[in-house]
């Protein structure tokens, strides 16, 4: 897959970090401001997709990245399920119960286990969307040429 023109590359270089940080912000502040795991994960995946589209990459590197991102995706959903199952053994012993202390409403570290759920879902969504994109690109490069 070829890269784009130098203008696109330069603008991407300037802007992609901001997009990535914005995604991280939406994920980690999901319990305070609008957004959450799904929205922030999609923004993070968008920053990676922008990088691949603008700079391009040869197919071997893309394959390595696809393997990595699918592993990360599985780890994300595994973390989510482990966090949910931990509630069976701690505290009130109910699936999906909030077993961490809730803290003060409106602070960054509050709401118990909800921020951790957000982070797990964010990792899962970001890696899933990026994996789908990479699978399509690799299919095009390998089969259609």
């Amino acid at each position: 897959m070829n890269g784009m023109t130098p203008i696109v590359k330069k603008v991407t270089q300037l802007i992609v970090g901001l997009i990535f940080l914005y995604g991280i912000y939406i994920i980690t502040h999901g319990h305070l401001t609008p957004g959450g795991g799904f929205a922030g994960g999609a923004v993070v995946a968008g920053s990676f997709i922008l990088l691949v589209l603008a700079y391009g990459s040869d197919i071997l590197k893309l394959k390595k990245r696809e393997e990595g991102s699918s592993v990360v995706e599985s780890l994300g959903i595994f973390l989510f399920i482990v966090l949910a199952f931990a509630a069976i053994f701690i505290g009130t012993k109910v699936f999906f119960a909030n077993y961490l202390p809730k803290g003060v409403i409106g602070e960054l570290i509050s709401a118990g286990v909800i921020p951790l759920y957000n982070i797990a879902v964010g990792i899962e969504v970001a890696a899933a969307l990026f994996t789908i994109f990479l699978a399509l690109v690799i299919y095009k490069e390998e089969v259609l040429k």
């Binding site: 319990h31 305070l32 959450g36 989510f80 399920i81 949910a84 809730k102 909800i114 899933a128």
Partner: peptide, 26 residues
């Protein structure tokens, strides 16, 4: 839930099964 954003509170606490299903669908 202790979450200032009500949507996230509902998504990950009251309707946790729903969110688990969505993540599994993806």
């Amino acid at each position: 839930t202790g979450s200032a954003n009500l949507v996230t509170g509902v998504l990950f606490d009251f309707r946790g099964y729903d969110t688990l299903g969505e993540a599994t669908i993806l």
